[in-house]
């Protein structure tokens, strides 16, 4: 792998759900890349196709077009065995920490079992690492022997993050990981993601509907609408000087916590959406 080669490269990705007449194209002509130790933000509304990109990288949906390279390897059509081989380098944190952790298993087992199954670590090593990571994400060793149901939403998300980091992955797909959390917890988890990246050099694909959140974590942001990337650029530029009308509208729609600024934003949003297609519903 040459130094210039990014960790993840997506080329002309297309994903179609259904067949024949019912076929619906959810992602079209998407090309993106993520370098080591960096974060790519993907922003859009529900149905824009942003989560589908993550799922295609993870092998959860089959691309209908395009190629995906990860760590110098073409993973577009990987066999099950090939998937298993890269599983420890490619991890995921989902949006809903309630359904993403099995309530019937103790936290220790949730963290340890995947890495033992992959034969990367012995049980003792795995346990040490699990405790280390729990402390890292702000929990204690005592959590190992408790069930996920004993934890709050924010704590469960920390456990899910610890699980993703167990095999020391190179890339973590974060699919709306803070969207269901309270403001104060959201801030803590965002800070946690940032700190872990500084310390371990992990890369993220950070998917969210909220530009303000994505901006805090990403070098580059891709704005998606209707399966396509409508705007791409450095985070600050996309957030402060959006070019595409959709990005402008998205930004104007995010209510700003200041009544004076918000009044301008609302006027701007109403003008933009009137210009776009009249009042949307």
């Amino acid at each position: 792998m040459s130094a210039a080669e990014p960790l993840l490269r997506i080329e002309d990705l297309g994903v179609t759900y259904g067949r024949g007449k019912r076929a619906k194209s959810v992602v079209r002509d998407v090309s993106l890349s993520v370098s080591e130790g960096r974060t790519l933000g993907v922003v859009g509304e529900s149905g824009a196709g942003k989560s589908t990109i993550g799922r295609a990288v993870l092998g959860l949906v089959k691309p209908s077009a395009g190629r995906i390279w990860f760590d110098g390897q073409d993973i577009t059509k990987l066999s099950l065995r090939g998937r298993r081989a890269i599983a420890s380098d490619l991890q995921v944190v989902f949006q809903d920490p309630r359904s993403s952790l099995n309530d019937a298993k103790k936290v220790g087992a949730i963290l340890i079992e995947p890495v033992i199954a992959g034969r990367r670590l012995s049980r003792r090593q795995a346990r040490e690492r699990a405790v280390e990571l729990l402390v890292e994400v702000g929990l204690t060793e005592a959590a190992m022997d408790r069930l996920p149901s004993n934890f709050s939403g924010g704590q469960r998300q920390r456990i899910a993050i610890a699980r993703a980091l167990m095999p020391s992955p190179k890339l973590v797909i974060c699919d709306e990981p803070v969207s269901s959390l309270d403001l104060s917890v959201q801030a803590q988890i965002i800070n946690l993601f940032r700190r872990l990246q500084r310390e371990t050099g992990v890369s993220y694909v950070f998917i969210a509907h909220d530009l303000a959140v994505v901006r805090l974590l990403s070098e580059n942001i891709a704005v998606m609408s209707d399966g396509r990337i409508v705007e791409f650029g450095p985070a600050a530029e996309v957030y402060e000087k959006p070019v595409h009308p959709y990005t402008k509208r998205l930004l104007a729609a995010e209510p700003y916590p200041d009544p004076v600024v918000q009044r301008q934003r609302r006027a701007e949003w109403e003008a933009l959406s009137a210009a776009a297609a009249g009042v949307s519903s």
């Binding site: 801030a187 965002i190 700003y256």
Partner: peptide
């Protein structure tokens, strides 16, 4: 004060968010 500061809107991306 803390809850307002924890809001990601208009936060400085070069620093961690203040938490409650």
């Amino acid at each position: 004060k803390m809850l307002l500061a924890a809001n990601p809107h208009g936060a400085d991306p070069d620093h961690d968010l203040p938490t409650v």
